[in-house]
Design a protein around this nucleic acid. Structure first.
Lengths: 161, 161
DNA sequence: CAAAATTAAATTTTGTACAATTTAATTTTA
DNA sequence: TAAAATTAAATTGTACAAAATTTAATTTTG
């Protein structure tokens, strides 16, 4: 924050303009790159339970809620049906979930944790610790990262509501 | 930071354990979600210059450097040839870049900004400001976000070197 | 210096992502 | 209540993204 002010004073003093078309000045690129770096760290860990990272996210939600519609899963993960439909079919093929249309409203497809899916949670409990070790960040650093990004994420959500 | 300490005291006091398998406690998910949210904000803006977000990143680099190998572009963007090769071919089809093998080492493919590619920068200068308005965050907030993520990103790079 | 190792891209395969369209079901409303 | 509007998924098409393999060129080394 202070560095930014100092830098702007420096720019002003030197009659320079911040070059917003330089990669180093981009705010979005580090987020985009970090997202891929973090997913890459998850890869070897999640290979052990035969899940990709987005599949793991769906399983996390179902371990909390047992049964949700495709729409509800999409709202939680900010993903649409074009992404979720094939992904959920893969989880069904792995017998981790069931896909059944709601009798009350047949437009709604209910996703339910299967017995195998519930059992998988026992294997998955070690994932967060393995990930933490792989990444080499402390719990505090990861918590701070999570909170910082969540603030920005919630701000952008409010803007778009 | 203080909230985290307080929360841990609360967990300890109530004999509870932080549930690292809950979506809300994930550090990676907000980064992954924010990355997609930010890219979505770029979409309508970059449509105006017929670029996708990863293509825009490549152009940003070339506006700075004019000529780089595929490998060098990959190092800057943390992307491998499997992603870059088809992307660069699309930029070549749009006549924004040229792809020529180095005479010194024919394994190396040099990517060069074309005249059209250089001209496109004039249209692109408005992109950062449009993006800022679309997102609704201040320059300070975006700068702070960039710096925070860059610290984490550099930490993970050091770990993997 | 020739075989072995390394390197740089390209290719292939699998898996997201998302926009746009379609289909089927449900709600709203004239 | 039947047509219009809305909603939820699925489908289609385009574009990454990364792992693994292949190809071709260059270096290293016995």
């Amino acid at each position: 924050m202070y560095n930014l002010i100092l830098y702007n004073v420096y720019l002003l003093f030197n009659q320079k303009q911040m070059d917003y078309l330089k990669l180093e000045n981009q705010a979005c690129f580090p987020v985009y790159a970090l997202s891929r770096v973090l997913t890459a760290h998850y890869k070897p860990i999640l290979d052990g339970i035969d899940l990709t990272y987005p599949q793991y996210l769906v399983m996390l939600i179902l371990w909390e809620h047992q049964e949700l519609s495709v729409k509800e899963i999409g709202e939680k993960l900010l993903l649409d049906s074009g992404t979720l439909t094939p992904l959920l079919k893969k989880l069904e093929n792995k017998q981790l979930i069931s896909r059944t249309r709601s009798t009350a409203d047949e437009r709604v497809l209910m996703i339910r944790l299967s017995k195998n899916g519930a059992t998988l949670k026992k294997k998955a409990v070690s994932v967060p610790e393995s990930f933490k070790c792989s990444l080499g960040l402390s719990i505090e650093e990861m918590g701070a990262l999570r909170d910082t990004i969540n603030i920005i994420l919630n701000r952008t959500k409010q803007i778009n509501k």
